[in-house]
Each structure stands twice: as C-alpha cells, then as structure tokens.
Computed example of a mutant assay.
Amino acid sequence: MADLSTLTIGTRGSPLALAQARETQTRLADSLGWTLEQLPLKLIKTTGDTIQDRALSEAGGKGLFTKELDTELLDGRIDLAVHSSKDLPTVLPDGIVIAGYFPREDVRDAFISRRAKTLRDLPQGAVVGTASLRRQAQVLRLRPDLKVTLLRGNVETRLAKLDRGEVDATLLAMAGLRRLGLTDHVTAILDTDDFLPAVGQGAIAVAVRDKDERVKAALRPVLDPKTGYALAAERAFLSVLDGSCRTPIAGHARLEGAELVLHGLVLRPDGSDSLVVTRRGAPSDAEALGREAGLDLKARMPAGFLNV
C-alpha cells in the first residue's frame, strides 16, 4: 500500500455513523501502520438524514441512507464508504461492492422504558415509539394491546423524546448503544428467540468501487470472514423476499461450530401472523442457504400476507 498516501472514508454525520467510521479509521491505521490523518473522514448528508416527519418506508426505503455516499464513491471523491449493514439495499449500484464487514457486535434489540422493566410489563395501551416496521410487527405480535407510533431521529434524539414522555418505551439496537457508550439506558435486552433482529444488525459494512483492488487489499486484513458468511446468508434471504423498509422481515445467521445456521421471520405489519424458517449448511454455501430460506417462506406466504 506504499503507493497510496491517503484513503478517504465516506460516512454519514450522525453520532453512530461517526463512531463506526472512527472504528474503521482505527482498524485501518493499526493494520497499515498509518496515521489517522492519512485516513480522513468525509461527512456526507443523505436524504434519509433529512426526512424526520415520516417513516422511511413512505419515502423510498433503505437506499435513502446510501445513495449520496454511492455517488461520492463512484465519482472518486471518497475511497470507501462505511455503512450500518442493515441500512444497505439488497441491490447495490453498478460499480459498487461490499468489500466485507468488521467483527459483528451484539445483534440483539434493547428495550428502553421509564415505565416498565420489560416489554411484557408495559401497561395496557402504552405507546411504543419506533421507526422500524420489523420492530412494530414484533411488538404487536407479543403485545397486540400496545400502540406503536413513529419515532425518528438518531439514538440520542430518540432517548430525549423518551425522557420527555413522548412515548412510554422504545427499542434500539444494542450494537449502536454499545458503540455510543449508552448502554446505561437499557432497561432489558430482548432475546433473539423472542425478538429476531434485522438482517445485518450489529455489523459494519465497507463499500468500495468494484475495480479498486488497492483499497480492497488495504481492507482485507481487517475484515471478518465469519461475519461475511452470516451476512451473505442474511442478505440473500432478504433479497428473495424483496425486503425493504416496507416489509417486516427479520433474519439472523451465525456460525455454530462448523455449521452456519440461519433463522428467518416474516410478519404481517400488525403482528397478527408470522412465518418462520430455519436453515443449516456449510458456510461456503451461505448465499444458497439464504436463498432457500427465502424461497421457503415465499412459497408458504398467503396472498396479501404483507397487507394489514
């Protein structure tokens, strides 16, 4: 990498996005023997950051958090883009690929409330705030008496709204809370057996230009193959189901010994019904395993299943 004096890292400007970009900076600096100044951050405001008055599902879905970074990457103004994996669309623009992922953080969701110790303990009719249809559907599956309302904004904004009493509870990713040093706000951690995470939750993805072999080589030593297998299965699963912010889909894959195990879930938006699937196989067959799981659920899904 001696012929590269700098690598510019593109990131959104939210506190969590910056924490993930700085982790990328540190990992690369340690691996390459570079200074942080050789790995400058470029903050890029995305369409998703500017929309706060409605759910992203009503505005276009996951690509709202990535398209401006994609443009900067394709135009050569940044060398790599750092993303929360769960924000990535299943289909990337031509010329962009995911180089890989860093070791995955905690995949679970956290329950946060000032009124109850667990989701099950919330009083009847309590208001849960979330911007995620997946979380909405799983909340209503467990507690159909609760009211779920839109809660947008970064992690700190959502916590502030909770403190002001705008909602009785919210759900946030444990990974984000850990990266921001905010785990002291957690009331309870939701077990994945009861509350399956979003595809990609907890994993930082790094996107690069498809033909930029120098940047790929710089990243290769710091990327995690185990997380790569899990995400390959999860994203293939999501792709078959045409997953977006408009669809309540959950999925989680992990290595258990030498075997990759994928659990998948699709729900009606009102939580009144759900379908589950489990697949096991060799890590090398991750994408095929994910596709098979998605096709299984698709074949069992009644017409109109995703309509409330």
Rank of each mutant, 00 (worst) to 15 (best):
A2V: 13
A2D: 12
D3A: 14
R12Y: 00
S14G: 11
S14R: 04
P15D: 10
P15A: 05
R22G: 00
L28A: 02
A29N: 11
A29K: 12
L32M: 10
G33N: 09
L36A: 15
L36C: 12
E37T: 10
L43S: 07
I44N: 03
K45G: 08
K45V: 11
T46H: 10
T47D: 14
D49I: 00
T50S: 14
R54H: 07
R54E: 04
A55L: 13
A55C: 02
S57R: 15
G60Q: 12
G60H: 08
G61A: 07
G61W: 01
L64K: 02
L69H: 02
E72P: 00
L73M: 08
L74P: 02
D75N: 10
G76Y: 05
L80W: 06
V82D: 01
H83D: 02
S85T: 13
D87N: 11
D87P: 01
D87C: 06
L92W: 01
P93H: 03
I96R: 08
I96T: 08
Y101S: 00
P103H: 05
R104D: 00
V107M: 10
D109H: 14
R114M: 04
R115F: 10
T118H: 15
R120F: 09
R120K: 15
L122E: 05
V127P: 04
A131P: 10
L133E: 04
R134A: 11
A137H: 04
A137Y: 05
R141K: 11
R143D: 07
K147Y: 10
V148Q: 06
V148D: 03
L150K: 12
G153F: 04
G153P: 10
V155S: 09
L159D: 06
L162W: 07
G165P: 09
E166Q: 14
A169N: 10
L171R: 07
A173Q: 10
A175M: 01
A175S: 14
L180W: 02
G181Q: 13
V186Y: 00
A188W: 02
L190D: 01
D191Y: 07
D194P: 04
F195N: 13
A198P: 01
A198C: 11
G202D: 01
G202K: 01
P221S: 05
D224L: 08
R235E: 12
A236P: 08
F237L: 01
V240T: 14
D242L: 12
S244E: 06
G251T: 11
H252Y: 13
A253K: 12
L255P: 03
E259Q: 10
L260W: 01
L260D: 07
V261M: 04
H263V: 03
D270K: 08
S272K: 13
R280D: 01
G281Q: 04
A282H: 14
A282W: 12
P283V: 02
D285L: 10
A299I: 11
P302T: 12
L306Q: 02
V308R: 15
